[in-house]
């Protein structure tokens, strides 16, 4: 029992406490972490405490300015903008997270397979990757989304991942290629360790930091594409999403536009904050993984 406790404290120190110390040392890292935590809370706890049902239309309360009752005012249908923002964050974060997960997993799988196997498998996978890299990602997304018309978040995430894995896969392949030549890998082979062991114990841990950081970039990319898709009105409206808010703001532009800004500016600022926070956090994580980058 004592041992278990000791191992747990050690792991906690290594996985949470030490990285946190490095992240909090830099102003950007602190900012990034706070932003990301804030939005995570908003998407998980927020919907539980939100006071308004954002799907009910109440035209008598339309376009109200910020007040105690509606901290960010209301939109054209009298819906509370803060409530919409909070409910919308749930979808944005969930779908983007799943997309990032799919994108990085596929990229890691294909990249490592390609780099480790070499030969014909590699040539074939490189050719596929090159082609996917050239096909315009967002236009393809639009075409597929319009044909599939899905509101299933997992399926949506899968669509969003369709071309996003290619650049990362290419990078992971080249990392694998150079790791494969490293002497500890050759030694493991010589010792008769099976490929599974070499991939999971020798190669993967060494690219893990790279994968995590690129996972964050995949996350930002997914936010971009997802919100963009909804903003264009090309994904079904069933879900609440910041993109839907932007879409409504644009469509109801013109005369009303200049009066009611919160419904446009609120999601726009949220998206910018979240993206900048994620980028700052990833920069800080890079310092966690790569001691040479640490300053001071």
């Amino acid at each position: 029992m004592v041992q278990v406790k000791e191992i747990l404290t050690k792991a906690l120190k290594k996985l949470v406490y030490d990285p946190l110390k490095i992240i909090l040392k830099s102003r950007r890292g602190t900012f990034g972490l706070i932003i990301v935590l804030f939005f995570t809370l908003m998407a998980t706890v927020g919907p539980l405490i939100v006071r308004y049902d954002p799907s009910t239309v109440n035209l008598s309360e339309a376009l109200q300015p910020p007040s105690l009752k509606h901290p960010l005012g209301t939109d054209w249908f009298g819906r509370d903008i803060l409530a919409m923002l909070i409910i919308g964050s749930q979808d944005v974060l969930f779908v983007s997270f799943v997309t990032a997960l799919i994108t990085t997993s596929v990229a890691t799988f294909i990249g490592i397979l390609s780099g480790y196997m070499g030969g014909k498998v590699d040539s074939a996978l490189v050719a596929v990757t090159d082609i996917v890299l050239t096909i315009p990602g967002f236009p393809l997304l639009i075409v597929i989304a319009s044909v599939l018309r899905t509101s299933n978040p997992i399926l949506l995430a899968a669509i969003l991942s369709i071309t996003a894995w290619a650049p990362l896969s290419r990078a992971i392949r080249s990392q694998t290629l150079s790791l494969r030549e490293r002497e500890f890998v050759e030694m493991a082979k010589c010792l008769g360790m099976p490929s599974i062991h070499i991939i999971f114990s020798e190669i993967l841990p060494n690219i893990m930091p790279y994968i995590i950081i690129n996972g964050i970039f995949a996350f930002t990319g997914a936010i971009y594409a997802q919100v963009g898709l909804f903003m264009l009105g090309l994904a079904p409206y069933k879900s609440q999403n910041w993109g839907v808010m932007l879409n409504l703001a644009v469509n109801y532009a013109g005369a009303v536009f200049s009066i009611r800004q919160a419904s446009l500016l609120a999601p726009a600022i949220c998206i910018i904050l979240l993206q900048v926070g994620l980028v700052f956090l990833s920069g800080s994580l890079e310092e966690v993984f790569n001691p040479r980058l640490r300053s001071g």
Binding site: L246, F257, L264, I272, V276, V279
Partner: peptide, 23 residues
């Protein structure tokens, strides 16, 4: 650079549209 690089182009476009064209 780090900040502008992280901003989605269409979000910035919307903000520009809002201020420079509408307001």
């Amino acid at each position: 650079s780090t900040i502008t690089n992280a901003i989605p182009n269409y979000v910035l476009a919307l903000i520009f549209l809002f201020f420079f064209a509408c307001v």
